[in-house]
Design a protein around this nucleic acid. Structure first.
Lengths: 161, 161
DNA sequence: ACAAAGATGATACTCAGTATCAATAGCCGA
DNA sequence: TCGGCTATTGATACTGAGTATCATCTTTGT
Protein backbone atom coordinates (compact mmCIF):
# COMPACT_ATOMS: atom_id res chain seq x y z
CA UNK A 1 0.00 0.00 0.00
CA UNK A 2 0.99 3.58 -0.46
CA UNK A 3 0.92 5.93 2.49
CA UNK A 4 0.16 9.26 0.88
CA UNK A 5 1.84 12.09 2.74
CA UNK A 6 -0.66 13.73 5.01
CA UNK A 7 -2.53 16.79 3.88
CA UNK A 8 -2.07 19.65 6.30
CA UNK A 9 -4.25 22.53 7.28
CA UNK A 10 -2.24 25.09 5.33
CA UNK A 11 -2.76 23.26 2.05
CA UNK A 12 -6.50 23.35 2.55
CA UNK A 13 -6.51 26.99 3.58
CA UNK A 14 -4.36 27.91 0.60
CA UNK A 15 -6.73 26.09 -1.73
CA UNK A 16 -9.63 28.08 -0.33
CA UNK A 17 -7.77 31.33 -0.92
CA UNK A 18 -6.87 30.27 -4.45
CA UNK A 19 -10.51 29.57 -5.15
CA UNK A 20 -11.25 33.19 -4.28
CA UNK A 21 -13.05 32.25 -1.07
CA UNK A 22 -12.63 33.83 2.31
CA UNK A 23 -10.41 32.59 5.12
CA UNK A 24 -12.88 32.77 7.95
CA UNK A 25 -12.53 31.67 11.56
CA UNK A 26 -15.04 28.82 11.33
CA UNK A 27 -13.36 27.43 8.24
CA UNK A 28 -9.95 27.63 9.90
CA UNK A 29 -11.17 25.87 13.02
CA UNK A 30 -12.84 23.09 11.10
CA UNK A 31 -9.86 22.64 8.83
CA UNK A 32 -7.53 22.41 11.82
CA UNK A 33 -9.65 19.64 13.26
CA UNK A 34 -9.77 17.77 9.97
CA UNK A 35 -6.04 18.12 9.48
CA UNK A 36 -5.42 16.73 12.95
CA UNK A 37 -7.57 13.76 12.12
CA UNK A 38 -5.86 13.37 8.77
CA UNK A 39 -2.52 13.02 10.53
CA UNK A 40 -3.97 10.37 12.79
CA UNK A 41 -5.62 8.62 9.85
CA UNK A 42 -9.04 9.10 11.37
CA UNK A 43 -12.16 9.37 9.26
CA UNK A 44 -15.28 11.25 10.37
CA UNK A 45 -18.86 12.29 9.73
CA UNK A 46 -20.07 15.89 9.59
CA UNK A 47 -21.80 15.43 12.90
CA UNK A 48 -18.61 14.20 14.55
CA UNK A 49 -16.65 17.06 13.09
CA UNK A 50 -19.18 19.54 14.39
CA UNK A 51 -19.18 18.17 17.92
CA UNK A 52 -15.42 17.96 18.01
CA UNK A 53 -14.90 21.45 16.69
CA UNK A 54 -17.26 22.85 19.28
CA UNK A 55 -14.87 21.89 22.05
CA UNK A 56 -12.51 24.64 20.93
CA UNK A 57 -14.98 26.79 19.02
CA UNK A 58 -18.47 26.50 20.47
CA UNK A 59 -19.78 29.27 18.23
CA UNK A 60 -19.50 27.17 15.07
CA UNK A 61 -22.88 26.31 13.61
CA UNK A 62 -23.98 22.97 12.33
CA UNK A 63 -24.80 24.35 8.89
CA UNK A 64 -21.32 25.78 8.55
CA UNK A 65 -19.84 22.39 9.27
CA UNK A 66 -21.86 20.77 6.51
CA UNK A 67 -21.02 23.62 4.16
CA UNK A 68 -17.30 23.44 4.90
CA UNK A 69 -17.17 19.69 4.43
CA UNK A 70 -18.94 20.05 1.10
CA UNK A 71 -16.51 22.77 0.12
CA UNK A 72 -13.44 20.72 0.98
CA UNK A 73 -14.93 17.73 -0.81
CA UNK A 74 -15.44 19.88 -3.91
CA UNK A 75 -11.85 21.05 -3.67
CA UNK A 76 -10.82 17.40 -3.64
CA UNK A 77 -9.50 17.24 -0.09
CA UNK A 78 -12.20 14.93 1.21
CA UNK A 79 -13.23 11.52 -0.05
CA UNK A 80 -16.42 9.77 0.96
CA UNK A 81 -15.37 6.33 2.06
CA UNK A 82 -17.79 3.41 2.20
CA UNK A 83 -17.37 0.86 4.96
CA UNK A 84 -18.31 -2.81 4.96
CA UNK A 85 -21.44 -2.09 6.98
CA UNK A 86 -22.59 0.43 4.38
CA UNK A 87 -21.86 3.52 6.44
CA UNK A 88 -20.12 6.42 4.75
CA UNK A 89 -17.60 8.78 6.30
CA UNK A 90 -15.18 11.42 5.14
CA UNK A 91 -11.45 10.96 4.84
CA UNK A 92 -8.81 13.57 4.05
CA UNK A 93 -6.80 12.86 0.91
CA UNK A 94 -4.35 14.54 -1.43
CA UNK A 95 -6.49 16.25 -4.05
CA UNK A 96 -6.18 14.84 -7.53
CA UNK A 97 -4.67 11.55 -6.47
CA UNK A 98 -6.44 8.56 -7.94
CA UNK A 99 -6.70 5.83 -5.37
CA UNK A 100 -9.17 3.60 -3.61
CA UNK A 101 -9.80 2.65 -0.04
CA UNK A 102 -9.31 -0.48 1.97
CA UNK A 103 -11.21 -0.37 5.23
CA UNK A 104 -11.04 -2.60 8.28
CA UNK A 105 -14.48 -3.93 9.04
CA UNK A 106 -13.66 -4.14 12.73
CA UNK A 107 -11.78 -0.99 13.67
CA UNK A 108 -12.74 1.20 10.70
CA UNK A 109 -9.13 1.91 9.85
CA UNK A 110 -8.79 3.35 6.35
CA UNK A 111 -5.84 2.62 4.09
CA UNK A 112 -5.43 4.28 0.73
CA UNK A 113 -4.37 1.87 -1.98
CA UNK A 114 -3.12 2.79 -5.40
CA UNK A 115 -4.04 -0.40 -7.20
CA UNK A 116 -6.83 -0.07 -9.70
CA UNK A 117 -8.65 -1.88 -12.42
CA UNK A 118 -6.30 -2.70 -15.30
CA UNK A 119 -6.93 -0.46 -18.30
CA UNK A 120 -7.62 -3.45 -20.55
CA UNK A 121 -10.42 -4.56 -18.24
CA UNK A 122 -12.00 -1.12 -18.47
CA UNK A 123 -11.64 -1.18 -22.23
CA UNK A 124 -13.29 -4.58 -22.42
CA UNK A 125 -16.22 -3.30 -20.41
CA UNK A 126 -16.43 -0.22 -22.56
CA UNK A 127 -16.47 -2.24 -25.77
CA UNK A 128 -18.92 -4.90 -24.70
CA UNK A 129 -21.37 -2.59 -22.95
CA UNK A 130 -21.33 0.28 -25.38
CA UNK A 131 -20.96 2.65 -22.43
CA UNK A 132 -18.49 5.51 -22.40
CA UNK A 133 -16.90 5.09 -18.99
CA UNK A 134 -16.47 8.26 -16.99
CA UNK A 135 -15.47 7.00 -13.57
CA UNK A 136 -15.55 4.26 -11.02
CA UNK A 137 -15.52 3.62 -7.34
CA UNK A 138 -13.80 0.71 -5.67
CA UNK A 139 -13.96 -0.13 -2.00
CA UNK A 140 -12.11 -3.05 -0.46
CA UNK A 141 -13.09 -4.54 2.88
CA UNK A 142 -11.08 -6.67 5.24
CA UNK A 143 -9.51 -6.99 8.63
CA UNK A 144 -6.34 -5.14 9.41
CA UNK A 145 -3.37 -6.97 10.88
CA UNK A 146 -4.15 -5.78 14.41
CA UNK A 147 -7.74 -6.95 14.26
CA UNK A 148 -6.73 -10.32 12.81
CA UNK A 149 -4.49 -10.87 15.79
CA UNK A 150 -7.26 -10.23 18.28
CA UNK A 151 -9.96 -12.39 16.71
CA UNK A 152 -10.62 -15.61 14.86
CA UNK A 153 -9.09 -15.58 11.38
CA UNK A 154 -11.53 -14.95 8.56
CA UNK A 155 -12.13 -17.43 5.76
CA UNK A 156 -9.70 -16.64 2.98
CA UNK A 157 -12.39 -15.54 0.58
CA UNK A 158 -12.23 -12.58 -1.68
CA UNK A 159 -15.86 -12.47 -2.82
CA UNK A 160 -18.02 -9.40 -2.59
CA UNK A 161 -19.98 -8.79 0.56
CA UNK B 1 -21.42 -7.53 -20.61
CA UNK B 2 -23.47 -10.40 -19.32
CA UNK B 3 -27.23 -10.05 -19.24
CA UNK B 4 -28.18 -12.26 -16.28
CA UNK B 5 -31.50 -13.95 -16.90
CA UNK B 6 -34.20 -12.04 -15.12
CA UNK B 7 -35.29 -13.08 -11.67
CA UNK B 8 -39.01 -13.70 -11.62
CA UNK B 9 -41.59 -13.36 -8.89
CA UNK B 10 -41.89 -17.09 -8.33
CA UNK B 11 -38.21 -17.46 -7.52
CA UNK B 12 -38.49 -14.83 -4.81
CA UNK B 13 -41.68 -16.29 -3.41
CA UNK B 14 -40.15 -19.76 -3.38
CA UNK B 15 -37.10 -18.44 -1.52
CA UNK B 16 -39.34 -16.93 1.11
CA UNK B 17 -41.13 -20.25 1.57
CA UNK B 18 -37.81 -22.08 1.77
CA UNK B 19 -36.68 -19.71 4.48
CA UNK B 20 -39.69 -20.77 6.53
CA UNK B 21 -41.41 -17.42 6.12
CA UNK B 22 -45.01 -16.81 5.22
CA UNK B 23 -46.40 -16.09 1.75
CA UNK B 24 -48.55 -13.10 2.55
CA UNK B 25 -50.52 -10.82 0.28
CA UNK B 26 -48.36 -7.72 0.83
CA UNK B 27 -45.19 -9.68 0.11
CA UNK B 28 -46.69 -11.12 -3.06
CA UNK B 29 -47.82 -7.72 -4.28
CA UNK B 30 -44.46 -6.10 -3.61
CA UNK B 31 -42.58 -8.99 -5.21
CA UNK B 32 -44.76 -8.80 -8.31
CA UNK B 33 -43.92 -5.14 -8.67
CA UNK B 34 -40.22 -5.75 -8.17
CA UNK B 35 -40.21 -8.63 -10.64
CA UNK B 36 -41.91 -6.45 -13.23
CA UNK B 37 -39.24 -3.84 -12.76
CA UNK B 38 -36.55 -6.50 -12.88
CA UNK B 39 -37.75 -7.55 -16.33
CA UNK B 40 -37.64 -3.95 -17.49
CA UNK B 41 -34.21 -3.47 -15.91
CA UNK B 42 -35.54 -0.71 -13.67
CA UNK B 43 -34.03 0.05 -10.30
CA UNK B 44 -35.99 1.62 -7.45
CA UNK B 45 -36.05 3.03 -3.94
CA UNK B 46 -38.28 1.77 -1.13
CA UNK B 47 -40.39 4.87 -1.41
CA UNK B 48 -40.94 4.34 -5.12
CA UNK B 49 -41.82 0.72 -4.58
CA UNK B 50 -44.34 1.69 -1.94
CA UNK B 51 -46.06 4.29 -4.07
CA UNK B 52 -46.12 2.01 -7.07
CA UNK B 53 -47.49 -0.95 -5.16
CA UNK B 54 -50.23 1.19 -3.70
CA UNK B 55 -51.77 1.63 -7.13
CA UNK B 56 -52.85 -2.01 -7.10
CA UNK B 57 -52.74 -2.61 -3.35
CA UNK B 58 -53.49 0.58 -1.43
CA UNK B 59 -53.61 -1.27 1.88
CA UNK B 60 -49.87 -1.96 1.89
CA UNK B 61 -48.07 -0.07 4.63
CA UNK B 62 -44.85 1.81 4.31
CA UNK B 63 -43.19 -0.24 7.04
CA UNK B 64 -44.03 -3.44 5.22
CA UNK B 65 -42.36 -2.14 2.10
CA UNK B 66 -39.15 -1.41 3.95
CA UNK B 67 -39.32 -4.77 5.71
CA UNK B 68 -39.90 -6.67 2.48
CA UNK B 69 -37.06 -4.93 0.68
CA UNK B 70 -34.75 -5.70 3.57
CA UNK B 71 -35.90 -9.31 3.50
CA UNK B 72 -35.30 -9.71 -0.22
CA UNK B 73 -31.92 -8.03 0.14
CA UNK B 74 -31.02 -10.51 2.88
CA UNK B 75 -32.11 -13.37 0.63
CA UNK B 76 -29.74 -12.00 -2.00
CA UNK B 77 -32.34 -10.91 -4.54
CA UNK B 78 -31.67 -7.20 -4.17
CA UNK B 79 -28.43 -5.31 -4.59
CA UNK B 80 -27.90 -1.75 -3.47
CA UNK B 81 -26.48 0.04 -6.47
CA UNK B 82 -24.54 3.29 -6.18
CA UNK B 83 -24.94 5.86 -8.92
CA UNK B 84 -22.50 8.50 -10.10
CA UNK B 85 -24.35 11.19 -8.16
CA UNK B 86 -24.01 9.19 -4.94
CA UNK B 87 -27.63 8.09 -4.76
CA UNK B 88 -28.36 4.47 -3.92
CA UNK B 89 -31.18 2.35 -5.27
CA UNK B 90 -32.18 -1.29 -5.28
CA UNK B 91 -31.80 -3.61 -8.22
CA UNK B 92 -33.04 -7.18 -8.62
CA UNK B 93 -30.28 -9.72 -9.20
CA UNK B 94 -29.73 -13.46 -9.27
CA UNK B 95 -28.82 -14.38 -5.71
CA UNK B 96 -25.30 -15.64 -5.24
CA UNK B 97 -23.96 -14.22 -8.48
CA UNK B 98 -20.80 -12.20 -8.05
CA UNK B 99 -20.93 -9.20 -10.29
CA UNK B 100 -20.66 -5.45 -10.27
CA UNK B 101 -22.70 -2.63 -11.72
CA UNK B 102 -22.19 -0.20 -14.52
CA UNK B 103 -24.65 2.68 -14.32
CA UNK B 104 -25.48 5.37 -16.82
CA UNK B 105 -25.01 8.75 -15.20
CA UNK B 106 -27.68 10.29 -17.40
CA UNK B 107 -30.58 7.81 -17.59
CA UNK B 108 -29.71 5.68 -14.53
CA UNK B 109 -29.70 2.48 -16.57
CA UNK B 110 -28.03 -0.36 -14.70
CA UNK B 111 -25.98 -3.06 -16.40
CA UNK B 112 -24.55 -6.00 -14.52
CA UNK B 113 -20.99 -6.76 -15.46
CA UNK B 114 -19.07 -9.85 -14.54
CA UNK B 115 -15.59 -8.45 -14.78
CA UNK B 116 -13.80 -8.12 -11.50
CA UNK B 117 -10.45 -7.34 -9.97
CA UNK B 118 -7.87 -9.91 -11.01
CA UNK B 119 -7.00 -12.30 -8.18
CA UNK B 120 -3.34 -11.36 -8.31
CA UNK B 121 -4.22 -7.73 -7.70
CA UNK B 122 -6.19 -8.69 -4.63
CA UNK B 123 -3.33 -10.83 -3.43
CA UNK B 124 -0.91 -7.98 -3.88
CA UNK B 125 -3.11 -5.72 -1.80
CA UNK B 126 -3.46 -8.39 0.83
CA UNK B 127 0.28 -8.92 1.08
CA UNK B 128 1.32 -5.29 1.09
CA UNK B 129 -1.39 -4.06 3.44
CA UNK B 130 -1.42 -6.93 5.90
CA UNK B 131 -5.22 -6.94 5.67
CA UNK B 132 -7.22 -10.12 5.28
CA UNK B 133 -9.61 -9.18 2.51
CA UNK B 134 -13.22 -10.18 3.01
CA UNK B 135 -15.05 -8.38 0.25
CA UNK B 136 -15.19 -5.50 -2.11
CA UNK B 137 -17.55 -3.26 -3.95
CA UNK B 138 -16.99 -1.90 -7.43
CA UNK B 139 -19.21 0.57 -9.23
CA UNK B 140 -18.54 1.78 -12.75
CA UNK B 141 -20.04 4.98 -14.10
CA UNK B 142 -20.52 6.09 -17.67
CA UNK B 143 -22.95 7.02 -20.38
CA UNK B 144 -24.90 4.32 -22.15
CA UNK B 145 -24.96 4.18 -25.93
CA UNK B 146 -28.36 5.87 -26.13
CA UNK B 147 -27.31 8.78 -23.96
CA UNK B 148 -24.07 9.23 -25.86
CA UNK B 149 -26.08 9.62 -29.04
CA UNK B 150 -28.25 12.36 -27.60
CA UNK B 151 -25.53 14.52 -26.05
CA UNK B 152 -22.01 15.78 -26.49
CA UNK B 153 -19.48 12.96 -26.27
CA UNK B 154 -17.61 12.72 -22.98
CA UNK B 155 -13.88 13.00 -22.69
CA UNK B 156 -12.41 9.54 -22.98
CA UNK B 157 -11.21 9.44 -19.42
CA UNK B 158 -11.40 6.51 -17.10
CA UNK B 159 -10.47 8.20 -13.84
CA UNK B 160 -12.52 7.98 -10.69
CA UNK B 161 -15.29 10.44 -10.14
C1' DA C 1 -61.86 -24.51 14.85
C1' DC C 2 -58.10 -22.91 17.84
C1' DA C 3 -54.11 -21.18 19.79
C1' DA C 4 -49.30 -19.67 18.97
C1' DA C 5 -46.32 -17.23 16.30
C1' DG C 6 -45.50 -14.42 12.35
C1' DA C 7 -46.65 -10.42 9.85
C1' DT C 8 -49.00 -6.14 9.22
C1' DG C 9 -50.09 -1.11 9.16
C1' DA C 10 -50.66 3.19 11.77
C1' DT C 11 -48.20 6.25 14.32
C1' DA C 12 -44.58 8.47 16.29
C1' DC C 13 -39.97 9.09 16.21
C1' DT C 14 -34.85 9.62 14.91
C1' DC C 15 -31.14 11.10 12.17
C1' DA C 16 -28.64 13.28 8.49
C1' DG C 17 -28.85 16.66 5.66
C1' DT C 18 -31.13 21.05 3.42
C1' DA C 19 -33.48 25.66 2.97
C1' DT C 20 -34.18 30.13 4.65
C1' DC C 21 -32.87 34.42 6.20
C1' DA C 22 -31.53 38.16 9.13
C1' DA C 23 -27.16 39.33 11.13
C1' DT C 24 -22.14 39.43 10.73
C1' DA C 25 -17.49 39.72 9.00
C1' DG C 26 -13.96 40.13 5.14
C1' DC C 27 -12.60 42.76 1.31
C1' DC C 28 -11.75 46.62 -1.53
C1' DG C 29 -11.86 51.08 -3.18
C1' DA C 30 -11.98 55.98 -1.79
C1' DT D 1 -9.66 54.76 8.22
C1' DC D 2 -14.26 54.60 6.44
C1' DG D 3 -18.12 52.71 4.08
C1' DG D 4 -20.41 49.74 1.44
C1' DC D 5 -20.74 45.44 -1.10
C1' DT D 6 -21.01 40.63 -0.82
C1' DA D 7 -19.64 36.23 1.01
C1' DT D 8 -20.39 33.81 4.99
C1' DT D 9 -22.42 32.64 9.15
C1' DG D 10 -25.58 30.54 12.75
C1' DA D 11 -30.36 29.89 14.33
C1' DT D 12 -34.34 27.89 13.07
C1' DA D 13 -37.41 25.27 10.71
C1' DC D 14 -37.95 21.82 7.62
C1' DT D 15 -37.49 17.50 4.66
C1' DG D 16 -36.94 12.65 3.51
C1' DA D 17 -35.40 8.18 4.46
C1' DG D 18 -35.48 4.91 7.51
C1' DT D 19 -36.60 2.80 12.41
C1' DA D 20 -39.26 1.56 16.74
C1' DT D 21 -43.42 0.37 18.79
C1' DC D 22 -47.52 -1.99 19.35
C1' DA D 23 -52.24 -3.37 18.96
C1' DT D 24 -54.42 -5.93 15.39
C1' DC D 25 -54.79 -9.23 11.97
C1' DT D 26 -53.14 -13.66 9.27
C1' DT D 27 -51.07 -18.14 8.67
C1' DT D 28 -50.18 -22.33 10.14
C1' DG D 29 -49.96 -26.62 12.68
C1' DT D 30 -52.88 -29.37 15.48
Amino acid sequence: MTQARTVNADQMKAAIAEAGLRPTRPRAALIDQMAAWATAGTDFTCEELWHSAQASAPWIGRSTTFRTVELLADLGFLDRVTFADGSERYHVVQPGSHHHHLTCEMCHRVVEIDICLPAEVLETVQRSSGFALTGHRLELFGRCSDCQRHTVPVIDSVDAE
